[in-house]
Design a protein around this nucleic acid. Structure first.
Ligand SMILES: [Zn+2]
Ligand SMILES: [Zn+2]
Ligand SMILES: [Zn+2]
Ligand SMILES: [Zn+2]
Lengths: 107, 107
DNA sequence: TGCAGTCCAACGTACAAAAAG
DNA sequence: TCTTTTTGTACGTTGGACTGC
């Protein structure tokens, strides 16, 4: 949180103004998961993400998973990842996790 | 944390600005944590220790924790305690805290 | 001032439920 | 059907930020 404190004094008047700025770490509710759009419960592995994507990324990393997208042709690697489809293709889900800048060390 | 306080005074106006900045050399002492070798932020419970070991010791003492090392045979009670392994065995971490002379009363 | 206590976001482990095979 | 794997929630732990003495 940023904190600035200004005191301005003229002849007979003193004004003290305290600014508290909302910064990155402050609690902001209802920010959706950057991977699937579901409701996030805060930051996980560097980005706002839901418990599902957070757990999926954690398991994939800890076990060094390599997934393959089973779609064919132009559809390959382009599976939709939202709350209802996120479990249909692990390859595309993990890809989207990385694209959303998820990382092991929480940035 | 470094703290700079500037006061600028002209004829009829004084401006006081308080900057709170995070500075590099501040809490980063050259003396490492005697338990895990991570950088310490000063003395905690009697010895130079990092925030992690300090918090771990505090929680263990306040809640009278008793941990058991899960290693077998000759390895029992000899788990390596450094920055990357300190969370893998609470028993050995706490043991090392005591061996480094950590104590409740900070002396 | 430095350090102990408090707070809490983010983490890891465990597990019931669901899905896969 | 049965067995194995995966999912996502629950819950305890970690450690950095903050408060107070
Ligand atoms: Zn998600
Ligand atoms: Zn796919
Ligand atoms: Zn330490
Ligand atoms: Zn051990």
């Amino acid at each position: 949180m940023n904190l600035f404190h200004f005191i301005i004094i003229s002849n007979t008047i003193a004004v003290s103004v305290l600014f508290l700025g909302l910064a990155e770490g402050d609690r902001l509710l209802d920010i959706p998961c950057k991977v699937c759009g579901d409701r996030s419960s805060g930051k996980h592995y560097g980005i706002y993400s839901c418990d599902g994507c957070s757990g999926f990324f954690k398991r994939s990393i800890h076990r060094s998973r390599v997934y393959t997208c089973k779609a064919a042709g132009d559809l390959k690697g382009r599976c939709p990842i939202d709350k209802t489809h996120r479990n249909q293709c692990r390859a595309c889900r993990l890809k989207k996790c990385f694209e959303a800048a998820m990382n092991k060390d929480g940035k």
